[in-house]
């Protein structure tokens, strides 16, 4: 099982077949799909690749789910199946999106991932390095787990945090470029690295003495947790929909800077 490293535009212009997925489906479901479609790499449909807007979803809807739908429809016959997270580890919109794609003739393998056995340490979450790169690698690890070399490197670069990021990988992902290398990751992204994407208890765990940006994608149900935790821990709640406006960037920069987070 491997990740397809081509962008959808390249996939469309080639003969490459891909298996789409969203959320964090269980490994056995991904392995079964890989066996059924040999030669097809996995593509994370949550990610924004510049797909044309299909117009299937309302404008006021979670951009991540819009990515899932628009990417899948854009790929056309290059997409052999979608392994769709439809359980509490994703959100209700995951189920609805799966039904919507299935109704358009796309093969959808609906999965749930209720695992509560923490199978990995939060190595990348606590390593020192560019936040965006670490978050992307965590999501890639759903299909391609960290190698021993990567685990060792992450372990050796564990750092004392100066600031925290809580949430899912955001759209736009460039939000993460505002954070210093000494940022620790919390929330759902941490749950994914530890192999328990539906672990709400872990998702809500944050240190009390660290300035944390609690991020919520616009129109995401996680907003209620993000806002509550931000209040409880004197963090900053940020909600971003389509674009990251200058005001949002300024808020994040100011919070990090004034909280002593920038090293």
């Amino acid at each position: 099982m491997f990740l397809c490293r081509l962008k959808p535009a390249e996939i469309i212009s080639s003969r490459q077949k891909v298996i789409g997925f969203w959320g964090a489906p269980p490994a056995h479901a991904l392995e079964q799909a890989a066996e059924r479609f040999p030669g097809a790499g996995f593509l994370d449909l949550d990610v924004f690749f510049g797909a044309p807007v299909s117009g299937v979803l309302p404008d006021a809807y979670c951009h991540i789910i819009r990515n899932c739908i628009d990417n899948a429809l854009w790929l056309g016959d290059r997409l052999v199946a979608v392994v769709a997270a439809c359980g509490e580890e994703k959100c209700d919109a995951g189920r609805y999106a799966a039904a919507l794609l299935a109704a358009r003739g796309i093969e959808v393998i609906a999965t749930v991932n209720p695992n509560r056995q923490r199978t990995a340490q939060p190595l990348l979450c606590e390593a020192k390095g560019p936040l965006k790169k670490r978050a992307i690698r965590i999501m890639e690890s759903i299909v391609e787990p960290l190698s021993d070399r990567e685990r060792n490197a992450a372990f050796m670069t564990r750092c004392t945090p100066t600031v925290g990021f809580w949430g899912t990988p955001p759209h736009p992902i460039e939000v993460l470029e505002l954070f210093p290398d000494t940022t620790h990751i919390f929330g759902w992204t941490r749950c994914v690295e530890m192999g328990v994407p539906a672990d709400l208890e872990l998702e809500r765990q944050v240190p009390g003495d660290l300035p944390i940006v609690f991020f919520s994608q616009g129109f995401c149900a996680k907003a209620m947790i993000a806002r509550e935790l931000a209040k409880q821990y004197s963090g900053m709640y940020v909600d971003v929909h389509d674009q990251m406006h200058a005001a949002t960037m300024a808020k994040i920069e100011a919070f990090i800077r004034l909280s002593g987070g920038r090293q």
């Binding site: 004197s234 900053m236 200058a246 005001a247 300024a250 808020k251 100011a254 919070f255 909280s259």
Partner: peptide, 20 residues
């Protein structure tokens, strides 16, 4: 053309907002 807000608790920023 905009409003900016900052609230401090213990001289730490606890609310930053910028309405544009």
């Amino acid at each position: 053309r905009d409003a900016k807000l900052v609230s401090f608790a213990g001289r730490r920023p606890v609310k930053l907002d910028w309405s544009v």
